[in-house]
């Protein structure tokens, strides 16, 4: 296994245009999630919302290495993956509000956004539930000779699920073009992963002889560089890989998880937010290299806020599905 914590400028291959693009994408995700939080706490959004705030560098760093027709699968905490892979916030908000204009016509909601047009095979509300789908998409890509790669995003909570290891075994046996991206945000819901996970995370892929890397998931350049290596490797027939991204969930397990002191301290949260924030760190780097100045970074947020507000309004103004249509799409 290889551990990369710092990506050099040359290694990351990020220039000014790419850098601002990635920063904008991270800003979009953060603003989107803040708006979700607001919609939820104002009781406008039904159901559950699991926010991706704090983990933006993982989705953006990985998806920036993917082609439009490459596949991803996502999780209950999936809004960031969807946006980073190309989903539009207006149809995402519409889905979150259960509207007909949503990506799933309101049938899926927050935890099930799928968008085949951008290679998104769906977020999944079963922990590790999409491991089979992602591996199968990679099997299909290899079998069809399409050159596509599949990325399976999952949290470290999925490390407790057997099906993940079943498909990792298959992927390594058959050298499938799939990258398993483990976002270790430290908490399986309300429990620290050290209380649930024996041994080391990277010992798991090692047991299958699978190439694995570990990166600082709050450093988008490191994620981007590692994802580039692993995606290129998979695409060129080198087989699957496992990428552990060490990250942090700023908010609760879901929006309603407000009182968190019983499982983690406010000091810990503050430390991650103030010293390792992925947007702040990447913004500093962009300014330090002269790729951007603070005004450019602020402009990314202004643009994102405008786009997100317009998108949210679109969704709020959209009609609900017709109840008489409830049985449509049970069967193809």
């Amino acid at each position: 296994m290889t551990i990369h914590t710092q990506a050099t400028r040359a290694e990351s291959g990020i220039d000014a245009a790419r850098g601002l693009q990635m920063y904008s994408q991270m800003a979009r995700i953060r603003v989107f999630e803040e708006r979700v939080n607001e919609l939820y706490t104002r009781a406008i959004m039904p159901g559950l919302a699991h926010l991706y705030i704090g983990q933006e560098a993982v989705a953006v760093g990985v998806c920036a290495q993917l082609e439009p027709d490459d596949y991803i699968t996502s999780t209950h905490r999936g809004h960031g993956h969807c946006l980073a892979k190309g989903a539009q916030p207006d149809r995402m908000f519409a889905e979150l509000l259960g509207k007909e204009a949503g990506y799933c016509r309101g049938r899926g909601g927050s935890m099930h956004i799928a968008d085949p047009a951008t290679g998104n095979l769906g977020a999944n509300a079963i922990v590790a539930g999409s491991a089979g789908v992602a591996t199968g998409a990679a099997f299909s890509a290899k079998w069809r000779g399409s050159g596509q790669v599949a990325v399976c995003f999952f949290g470290e909570g999925a490390l407790g699920q057997g099906v993940l290891y079943e498909v990792m075994n298959l992927a390594q046996l058959w050298l499938l073009p799939v990258v398993y991206v483990c976002e270790n945000n430290l908490y399986n819901e309300y429990t620290h992963y050290r209380e649930t996970t024996a041994g080391e995370v990277l010992a798991r892929p090692a047991a299958f002889g699978m190439h694995a890397e570990q990166v600082d998931g709050q450093d988008v350049r490191a994620v981007f560089a590692a994802a580039g290596r692993l995606v290129t490797r998979a695409r060129s027939g080198g087989g699957p890989a496992f990428l552990q991204c060490d990250t942090y969930r700023y908010r609760g397990h879901h929006v309603g998880d407000i009182n968190r002191v019983f499982y983690r301290s406010k000091e810990e949260e503050q430390e991650w937010m103030t010293t390792r924030d992925p947007l702040a760190r990447f913004g500093d780097w962009l300014c330090r290299l002269g790729f951007a100045d603070p005004a450019d970074l602020e402009a990314c947020f202004v643009t994102a806020r405008h786009e997100i507000e317009t998108a949210a309004q679109f969704a709020l103004d959209s009609p609900f599905p017709d109840a008489s249509d409830v049985q449509r799409h049970v069967y193809a």
């Binding site: 596949y71 699968t73 095979l121 491991a131 089979g132 789908v133 992602a134 591996t135 199968g136 998409a137 990679a138 099997f139 299909s140 890509a141 079998w143 069809r144 599949a150 057997g162 099906v163 079943e166 498909v167 075994n169 298959l170 046996l173």
Partner: peptide, 22 residues
Amino acid sequence: TPISEAGFTGLAVGAAMTGMRP
């Protein structure tokens, strides 16, 4: 396949979603 029913059935689901008929 290996003796791995959940694994290869899950794989088949993904393959079916992406252009095959397993």
